[in-house]
């Protein structure tokens, strides 16, 4: 038994990932914390005329001009105004191979938890209206379903 535990632990540990849970219209979504740079109160955005709808604006994050990505639009959700609980999540991740800083607006930031990605379940085809390519899968956390988003596809510019 002991040897069995030792043998399986590294494998199991490698499947665990720290994720940040945030809310959009009541749903719990999650992104890997490894790409989260900081979490800020909303900053008034500057709209870029004629920009693609999923990247409508720019924000000043401490002297750096950062594109604001509208993930509600990506997930086919209706737009909503920011309120007191809204937060800006600043991410830093490679987009088409280029390290890029970008920001997304969410309704609330909840917590960081260690998700067992081995237990990731795929969303049934009729299980959600979100485009499938943006969703990696679903994990259970307490009594909730947490939707793990795919940062590779979600932030790809030509989408």
């Amino acid at each position: 038994m002991t040897s069995d535990t030792i043998a399986t632990r590294p494998a199991a540990a490698s499947r665990r990932e720290m994720v940040l849970i945030f809310r959009l219209m009541g749903e719990a979504f999650a992104l890997s914390v490894s790409c989260v740079h900081e979490i800020l109160d909303p900053i008034p955005p500057t709209v870029v005329p004629n920009a693609p709808t999923f990247a409508p604006a720019l924000v000043n994050v401490r002297g750096a001009i950062v594109p604001l990505i509208d993930i509600r639009r990506r997930l086919d959700m209706p737009p909503a105004p920011a309120d007191a609980a809204s937060r800006l999540i600043v991410l830093e991740l490679p987009v088409s191979g280029v390290p890029t800083r970008l920001a997304i607006l969410c309704d609330a930031v909840e917590e960081v938890f260690e998700a067992d990605t081995a237990a990731l379940e795929t969303v049934p085809s009729l299980g959600a209206r979100w485009p499938e390519i943006y969703v990696k899968g679903v994990v259970r956390h307490t009594d909730d379903l947490v939707i793990l988003l795919d940062t590779d596809t979600l932030f790809r510019p030509d989408g």
């Binding site: 008034p44 870029v48 920009a51 990247a55």
Partner: peptide, 20 residues
């Protein structure tokens, strides 16, 4: 790269009041 293709803009800057 999200906005490079948008015609009509050469870049962006930050103004004295911190807005873009």
């Amino acid at each position: 790269q999200y906005h490079r293709g948008v015609e009509g803009f050469a870049g962006a800057t930050i103004l004295g009041d911190g807005s873009v």
